[in-house]
Structures are given as C-alpha cells and as structure tokens.
Design a protein around this nucleic acid. Sequence first.
DNA 1: TATTGTTATACTCTATAACTATA
DNA 2: TATAGTTATAGAGTATAACAATA
Lengths: 151, 151
Amino acid sequence: MATTIEQTDGGSGALDTLVGYHLRRVYGIFGSDFTEAMEGTGLRQVLFGILSVVAANPGMRQGAAGEMLGIQRANMVALINELVAADLIDRQVAEDDRRAFALTVTPAGKVAMAEALRRIRAHEDRLLADLSHDERRTLIGLLERIERTRT
Amino acid sequence: MATTIEQTDGGSGALDTLVGYHLRRVYGIFGSDFTEAMEGTGLRQVLFGILSVVAANPGMRQGAAGEMLGIQRANMVALINELVAADLIDRQVAEDDRRAFALTVTPAGKVAMAEALRRIRAHEDRLLADLSHDERRTLIGLLERIERTRT
DNA sequence: TATTGTTATACTCTATAACTATA
DNA sequence: TATAGTTATAGAGTATAACAATA
C-alpha cells in the first residue's frame, strides 16, 4: 500500500520494482545453469559466443568478432588462443592486411557448436518452461529494443 | 529464411535466437550504465542491493541478507565491512545469538539510499525510454516468472 | 600517424575449503 | 554436531596503458 520504502516487509524492498535487479537475478540463474549445461564440453558463454559469431561470419577479423560481442581487443587474445589450442577456431594472417587475423570455425568447431547448441536449447527450455512461445518472443523482443537504445 | 545456422550473415548467428544471449547483452548495458549513474556515491550494484534488503528488513542477519541476494557468506564479509566503514550500515552482535550480526541501515545510509534510488530511477528511465509502462511491467513480470522457476 | 594484435597488470565478482566462536 | 561469520585463495570477467608490426 505504501509508495515509499517499507520497513520490515520481509522482501527485497525497493529492489523489486527495478528492472535492473530482476535482470541481474535472471542473468545469474541463466549463467550458472549454462555452466552446468556445458560441463565437459570445455565451452563457456564467451567461447560459445565467439564460435557463433565466427561461424556466422567466416574469415572475420579477431577485432571485429570482439566488437560484436563487446569484448575488448586485449581480452580477445587469450580467448582466441584457447579456441585455437582446442582446434575449434582456425586463425590465419589476413591476406589483405598482415596485421590482422582471419578467423574461421574448424570442422571440429562446428561439431562442438552443434552439440553446445543442443545443450543450450535444452537449458533454455528448462528455464523458460513456464513461458509460452509467444511470451518468449515477447521477452526477446523487449530485450532487443533495449539493446537498440544503447549499443 | 533458413532455420539452420547461416554462413556470412553479418549477424550474431544462432546467438540471436537465444534468450540467454540477449539477457547477457542487456545485463551488460544496465551494468555499465548503473556504474556511471552511481559515480561519486561509492555505491555499486551489490552494495545498493544489500542496503535495500537491510532497509526493508531492519535487524536482519548478515547471512540472511546474503541469501536473499545470492551472495555467499564468505563474500558478504568484505561487503559489510565496506558498508560499515562508510557508516551506511550498523552491525551489532545479535542479542539472541552471539554468533550472528544484526544489520540496520544508518541515517547516513538512508540518505545515501534515497540519492541512489533517485539516480537509479533516472538510469532505468533512460535505458527503458523506448518501452511503455505496460511493457516495463510485462518485462518485470516475465523475469519474475523465470526467477520463480529456479530460486 | 593510426590500427591490429599483444603483453602486463589490476580490480571486481564469484566459488571453495578450512578455521573460530558460539549454539 | 551444526551454524554464523571469517580468512585465504583461486578463477573468470573486465578494464587500461604501453608496445611491436603493419598500414
């Protein structure tokens, strides 16, 4: 009934009315379940993200991949090293610019991606079981509109 | 038109269809804008979260506050130390259990919270400018339903 | 001069195990 | 024996600055 902050309400207080708070909680739930779902594959959120972006844009540069995912150049180095070491990504000096690297997903990378995608779909189905397909689309749509405001 | 992963689509590939990916992006946008919005207050997301929970439940125990926010006991220590040092939280040995600490928000803490809340509302209004009030409620509602599935 | 990737570094967040003091 | 808080520590994510090679 109160519009101000209640005392001893047994809840989270002002937090519950904030979109950011709920985003934080749900992101946490997704994150830990994702990690569980990926157990044994050696893939993490970032690594799958990179694989996915490179698969959609074969030959793209390391820097461009990082930019699309909001990963800084400096932090891309170790990540790409990891993917190359695991033979999931192929890294070649770009023909037209010898400073840059052209990335492609290896055959093994494609296999790994397919398996990961299967697990991720199951993980999302698990966490979104209470939402109808329409509601999932609504959720993605709302999130995309927020992304467009600030990207 | 393709239901499989496209090649050279210029986009994020399979990522775009995943709720988790959009959550990650939007959470990132909210996180960095939150940090900017709080500049000069000394408050971060976690610290504001603790203040908010303790304000809503005066006298609550350190462990219970952490539990509500998904923060492990071990990690609460330094956070509460920080809030006590800043005179935003009062920490007293609980009368009925001398192992435990009873937490309350200090007067200075309430002032800080009010100012933080003002900034956070502005920050959310900024990032959610494209959404109607109904859409914001829908978004929070959907997120809350996901939280309930796994908490 | 500017850009691509690199190295070094540092800070926050998160997670685990072993400890203490109380219960 | 179990619980509340503590300490130490380690890993992941993220951020900045300075550098080499190339443009």
